[in-house]
Design a binder for these strands. Structure first.
Length: 430
RNA sequence: GGAGAGGUGGCAGAGUGGUCGAAUGCGGCGGUCUUGAAAACCGUUGACGGGUUAAACCGUCCGGGGGUUCGAAUCCCUCCCUCUCCGCCA
């Protein structure tokens, strides 16, 4: 949510700014609603003031023991108009609120203009894609042989649930678990994060706070019944909302949290996309990093956060590149986003494995997350989030990058203690 | 699932229809004292919106929503949450 003052001042430049995202702000509608709101609010407050005055007079008269009947008669018919004004005002404010909840965050000046991911800009590259002297297989071909020791079992996922669900067995399941462990250990031991274990089900206030609602409800899995609960699409939601409706002390900042959770996404509108393998699933696991910071520190924090995600890939010896998302590809709440794309030999391409965003005060304003600043005034914090990393996609990357000619997978050194082996998926016979 | 008790400012905790946005304590901030600090004492200290150069000033907010009333923290309805006891249970 943007500062309401922006909707009252220079609407045209706000509209121009939002146009970078192809978001069309209807200036006339906002203007007319704002005008009516201002008039009605003034009038309502005047009437409220009158009512308060009269009520106090009656109270005082009664305390003195005077006859209050004449005063009561005088004040009798005031209520209707006030009620009407209050009702109309609430309705107007509801409309303005709905608009402001649907407006995306302002982009940082450093974000390049562009329509789609094709216009994202490479910031840096790390590692060299490995040259293979045999035919490269993708993670599906590498793991779908059920006769072998470990497997990615897509058929069973479809059997027990449906499409875009996967069952992992044996060594693959263990490698997956090892990856999540490794990431958590790294972030807590070396990057200064507090580890949290949070609910995987959240209420709509939390989803509104981080801005998945009201606009992106169709991306979520909602629970049946009248609880109003949803499965989390990312642990960004529970982690960030820990500071909802809070006034923090400056000493509390920065807050750096990490958690390993499943993520549930309906993937509405992605029917033909990434249907092969476990790149795009309805359920996947992710180690998330969230920063709650002083507003002046958030841009430094974005670099730091991105570096923490990169550190995971470097220790796993996986080649990647860092991209600045262009204006058209940057998410709703973000002012600026770095995507980290890992090299996938099976796709002969870099694919997103982490997304690190500075949401500035956008989520904080929705959540009313503030701190008491140097002057003793309340001020909105800035929030950041990033994947550190998507575990399933990291699994894919390890499998594809570390494959051997015989179909086995060599395990990165840092994972070997957790996996308990230096090679998995060894052929059982010749 | 059943019974009961509660939800009030950063925290604790009074307040049961009329200057109550709310006593008091803690914490925070400023000061006195002190070489400095602590203690003690004095003062100050809610959030949000409108308004102003700044103030004054006005409005809203006592878990959420609705109602009664000239007037609601206080009464009524409803939902949510917390605690205690019982039952069930990983």
């Amino acid at each position: 949510m943007l500062d309401a003052k922006l909707f009252r001042a220079d609407l045209q430049s706000l509209a121009n700014e939002l146009a970078r995202r192809d978001y069309v702000l209807d200036i006339d509608v906002v203007n007319s609603l704002e005008d009516r709101r201002r008039d009605l609010q003034t009038k309502t407050q005047e009437l409220q003031n009158q009512r308060n005055q009269r009520s106090k007079e009656i109270g005082a008269a009664k305390a003195r023991g005077d006859d209050i009947e004449p005063l009561l008669a005088e004040v009798n018919d005031m209520g209707d108009e006030l009620k009407r004004c209050e009702h109309d005002l609430a309705e107007l404010q509801g409309k303005l609120q709905a608009i402001s909840l649907s407006v995306p965050n302002l982009l940082d000046a450093s974000v390049p203009n562009g329509k789609s991911e094709d216009n994202n800009v490479e910031v840096r590259k790390w590692g060299e894609p490995r040259q293979f002297d045999f035919d490269v297989r993708d993670h599906v071909d590498l793991t779908s042989d059920l006769s072998r020791d470990g497997a990615l079992d897509f058929d069973s996922g479809a059997l027990i649930t449906g499409s875009r669900f996967t069952v992992m067995r044996n060594e693959i399941a263990r490698l997956h678990r090892a990856l999540a462990q490794f990431m958590l250990n790294l972030h807590t031991a070396e990057h200064g994060y507090t580890e949290l274990n949070v609910p995987f089900i959240v209420n709509s206030d939390s989803l509104t706070g981080t801005s998945q609602l009201p606009k992106f409800a169709e991306d979520l899995f909602a629970l049946e019944g009248d609880s109003g609960y949803y499965l989390i699409p990312t642990s960004e939601v529970p982690l960030t909302n820990l500071v909802r409706d809070k006034i923090l002390s400056p000493d509390d900042l920065p807050i750096k949290m990490t958690a390993h959770t499943p993520c549930f996404r309906s993937e509405a509108g992605s029917y033909g996309k990434d249907t092969r393998g476990m790149i795009r699933q309805h359920q996947f696991e992710k180690v998330e990093m969230v920063h709650i910071v002083h507003p002046e520190k958030s841009w430094d924090a974005l670099e730091e956060l991105t570096g923490h995600a990169e550190a995971v890939l470097q220790k796993l010896e996986l080649p990647y590149r860092v991209m600045t998302l262009c204006s058209g590809d940057t998410g709703f709440a973000a002012s600026k986003t770095y995507d980290i794309e890992v090299w996938l030999p099976g796709q002969d391409a870099y694919r997103e494995i982490s997304s690190c965003s500075n949401c500035t005060d956008f989520q904080a304003r929705r959540m009313k997350s503030r701190f008491r600043n140097e002057d003793g005034k309340t001020e909105l914090v800035h929030t950041l989030n990033g994947s550190g990393l998507a575990v399933g996609r990291t699994l894919v990357a390890v499998l594809e990058n570390n494959q051997q000619q015989d179909g086995s997978i060599s395990i990165p050194t840092v994972l070997q203690p957790l996996v308990g082996a230096d090679t998995i998926l060894k052929p059982t016979n010749g």
